[in-house]
């Protein structure tokens, strides 16, 4: 298992750079991960998505799909793609310290 030092903390990551232990995640890590994904600063709208994704993963045990996020958080598909451009599925999961979304929708 690889590790990565981010925002001053060493965390476990898989080959694709997704964190493997959600408990190691911090808000500072999210901010740093977002920069690596090309999102300069996280707004309240970003946090709404990230917080929802983490809650959903904590209660279901699975990283949420985009549709789970839009139906559950109330953030529209359009907004989700605008907030996390070029691949929101992977970006949200990575920034929220979760694995790749489990599910096809």
């Amino acid at each position: 298992m690889a590790t990565k030092t981010i925002a001053g903390k060493t965390v476990q990551v898989n080959d694709e750079g997704f964190m493997t232990n959600p408990a190691e995640w911090t808000k500072e890590i999210a901010i740093e991960m977002a920069r690596e994904e090309g999102i300069e600063s996280l707004t309240d709208a970003h946090w709404k998505v990230i917080d929802y994704a983490r809650q959903s993963a904590a209660s279901s045990g699975a990283s949420p799909t985009l549709r789970t996020i839009t139906t559950g958080s109330g953030v529209s598909t359009k907004d989700l793609f605008a907030l996390f451009p070029k691949g929101p599925a992977k970006k949200v999961a990575k920034i929220a310290g979760l694995g790749k979304p489990e599910g096809c929708v």
Binding site: L66, F81, K86, G87, A89, K90, K91
Partner: peptide, 12 residues
Amino acid sequence: LVMGWAALGNGI
């Protein structure tokens, strides 16, 4: 629909 949605989610 399924593959297209997956592609968009992956930035394609």
